[in-house]
Simulated assay, not measured.
Amino acid sequence: MSRIKEMKEVLLGIYNYLNKLEKGIEDIIERYQDGDEGQANRMMVEVIDSMGWIIEGINSTGEIQKEEIEVDKINEHLKEIIMAFENRDYVLLGDLLEYEINPIIDDWKKKIKPIIEE
Protein backbone atom coordinates (compact mmCIF):
# COMPACT_ATOMS: atom_id res chain seq x y z
CA MET A 1 0.00 0.00 0.00
CA SER A 2 1.35 3.41 -0.90
CA ARG A 3 2.17 5.94 1.78
CA ILE A 4 -0.51 8.33 0.50
CA LYS A 5 -3.12 5.58 0.55
CA GLU A 6 -2.10 4.69 4.11
CA MET A 7 -2.48 8.32 5.18
CA LYS A 8 -5.93 8.46 3.58
CA GLU A 9 -6.88 5.31 5.51
CA VAL A 10 -5.72 6.97 8.74
CA LEU A 11 -7.82 10.05 7.98
CA LEU A 12 -10.83 7.90 7.08
CA GLY A 13 -10.55 6.16 10.44
CA ILE A 14 -10.23 9.51 12.20
CA TYR A 15 -13.21 10.93 10.28
CA ASN A 16 -15.41 7.99 11.22
CA TYR A 17 -14.26 8.19 14.82
CA LEU A 18 -14.91 11.94 14.97
CA ASN A 19 -18.54 11.29 14.01
CA LYS A 20 -18.87 8.84 16.91
CA LEU A 21 -16.99 11.21 19.20
CA GLU A 22 -19.42 14.05 18.50
CA LYS A 23 -22.33 11.83 19.51
CA GLY A 24 -20.44 10.70 22.61
CA ILE A 25 -19.69 14.28 23.60
CA GLU A 26 -23.36 15.21 23.25
CA ASP A 27 -24.18 12.27 25.51
CA ILE A 28 -21.58 13.40 28.06
CA ILE A 29 -22.96 16.94 28.07
CA GLU A 30 -26.48 15.60 28.67
CA ARG A 31 -25.27 13.35 31.48
CA TYR A 32 -23.50 16.26 33.19
CA GLN A 33 -26.64 18.38 32.83
CA ASP A 34 -28.76 15.55 34.26
CA GLY A 35 -26.42 15.11 37.25
CA ASP A 36 -25.07 11.70 36.16
CA GLU A 37 -21.46 12.72 36.75
CA GLY A 38 -20.22 9.17 37.36
CA GLN A 39 -21.11 7.88 33.90
CA ALA A 40 -20.12 11.18 32.27
CA ASN A 41 -16.71 11.01 33.95
CA ARG A 42 -16.10 7.46 32.72
CA MET A 43 -16.95 8.61 29.21
CA MET A 44 -14.72 11.67 29.59
CA VAL A 45 -11.70 9.49 30.32
CA GLU A 46 -12.28 7.73 26.99
CA VAL A 47 -12.63 11.06 25.16
CA ILE A 48 -9.39 12.40 26.62
CA ASP A 49 -7.56 9.17 25.77
CA SER A 50 -8.89 9.11 22.21
CA MET A 51 -7.87 12.71 21.54
CA GLY A 52 -4.22 11.69 21.78
CA TRP A 53 -4.72 9.06 19.08
CA ILE A 54 -6.63 11.51 16.87
CA ILE A 55 -3.99 14.24 17.21
CA GLU A 56 -1.19 11.78 16.45
CA GLY A 57 -3.05 10.57 13.35
CA ILE A 58 -3.71 14.08 12.10
CA ASN A 59 -0.06 15.05 12.64
CA SER A 60 1.10 12.00 10.69
CA THR A 61 -0.92 12.98 7.61
CA GLY A 62 0.24 16.55 7.14
CA GLU A 63 1.60 16.04 3.64
CA ILE A 64 -1.80 15.12 2.18
CA GLN A 65 -3.82 17.78 3.99
CA LYS A 66 -5.19 20.33 1.56
CA GLU A 67 -5.82 22.82 4.34
CA GLU A 68 -3.75 22.43 7.50
CA ILE A 69 -5.65 20.66 10.25
CA GLU A 70 -4.55 22.56 13.32
CA VAL A 71 -4.22 20.49 16.46
CA ASP A 72 -2.62 23.16 18.63
CA LYS A 73 -5.97 24.81 19.38
CA ILE A 74 -7.37 21.69 20.98
CA ASN A 75 -4.33 21.13 23.20
CA GLU A 76 -5.07 24.33 25.13
CA HIS A 77 -8.66 23.22 25.64
CA LEU A 78 -7.61 19.72 26.66
CA LYS A 79 -5.53 21.25 29.45
CA GLU A 80 -8.61 23.20 30.58
CA ILE A 81 -10.73 20.05 30.40
CA ILE A 82 -8.27 18.09 32.52
CA MET A 83 -8.17 20.91 35.08
CA ALA A 84 -11.98 21.15 35.18
CA PHE A 85 -12.16 17.35 35.44
CA GLU A 86 -9.72 17.32 38.38
CA ASN A 87 -11.65 20.16 40.06
CA ARG A 88 -14.98 18.39 39.43
CA ASP A 89 -16.29 21.50 37.70
CA TYR A 90 -18.88 19.70 35.61
CA VAL A 91 -20.57 22.86 34.35
CA LEU A 92 -17.26 24.09 32.94
CA LEU A 93 -16.56 20.64 31.49
CA GLY A 94 -19.89 20.62 29.66
CA ASP A 95 -19.32 24.15 28.38
CA LEU A 96 -15.80 23.36 27.16
CA LEU A 97 -17.05 20.30 25.32
CA GLU A 98 -19.98 22.10 23.76
CA TYR A 99 -18.48 25.46 22.89
CA GLU A 100 -14.78 24.71 22.39
CA ILE A 101 -14.26 21.04 21.47
CA ASN A 102 -17.31 20.43 19.28
CA PRO A 103 -16.51 23.33 16.91
CA ILE A 104 -12.92 22.08 16.54
CA ILE A 105 -14.11 18.56 15.77
CA ASP A 106 -16.53 19.96 13.21
CA ASP A 107 -13.70 21.97 11.62
CA TRP A 108 -11.47 18.89 11.46
CA LYS A 109 -14.22 16.89 9.79
CA LYS A 110 -14.72 19.61 7.16
CA LYS A 111 -11.00 19.57 6.36
CA ILE A 112 -10.71 15.77 6.31
CA LYS A 113 -13.78 15.05 4.20
CA PRO A 114 -12.43 16.33 0.85
CA ILE A 115 -9.23 14.31 1.33
CA ILE A 116 -10.97 11.00 1.95
CA GLU A 117 -13.46 11.60 -0.88
CA GLU A 118 -10.75 11.93 -3.54
Rank of each mutant, 00 (worst) to 15 (best):
V71N: 00
I4C: 09
M44I: 04
I64Q: 00
L96F: 15
G35S: 03
L12A: 13
A40V: 03
R31G: 05
I58G: 00
D106W: 08
N41R: 10
L97H: 11
G94D: 13
Q33S: 15
D49T: 15
E80N: 15
V10R: 08
I25N: 05
I82V: 15
G24C: 09
D49E: 13
K110P: 00
G62V: 09
D89H: 08
G57R: 06
S2M: 04
K23A: 10
K110Q: 09
I29Q: 05
R31H: 12
Q65L: 00
I69G: 01
M43I: 09
P114V: 07
R3N: 07
K110L: 05
I58Q: 00
R88D: 06
L12I: 11
I54L: 14
V71C: 02
M7D: 10
E118Q: 13
Y17T: 06
Y32E: 05
G24R: 06
D34L: 14
P103S: 12
G13T: 11
M51C: 04
A84D: 11
N19M: 11
G57Y: 02
G13I: 03
I55W: 07
I25D: 01
I4N: 11
E63V: 12
I105Q: 06
K73P: 03
I115Q: 00
K66N: 08
E86I: 13
M44K: 08
I112L: 05
K79N: 15
L92C: 01
L78C: 00
S2G: 13
R42N: 13
D36C: 12
L21T: 11
A40L: 02
I104L: 07
L21E: 02
R42L: 06
I74W: 02
E6P: 03
W108F: 05
E117D: 11
I104Q: 01
A40K: 00
L92G: 03
R42W: 12
D106S: 06
K8M: 11
E37K: 13
L96Y: 08
K79G: 14
I82M: 14
N16I: 02
G13C: 12
G57T: 03
M7I: 14
T61H: 04
G94T: 07
K20Y: 05
D34R: 15
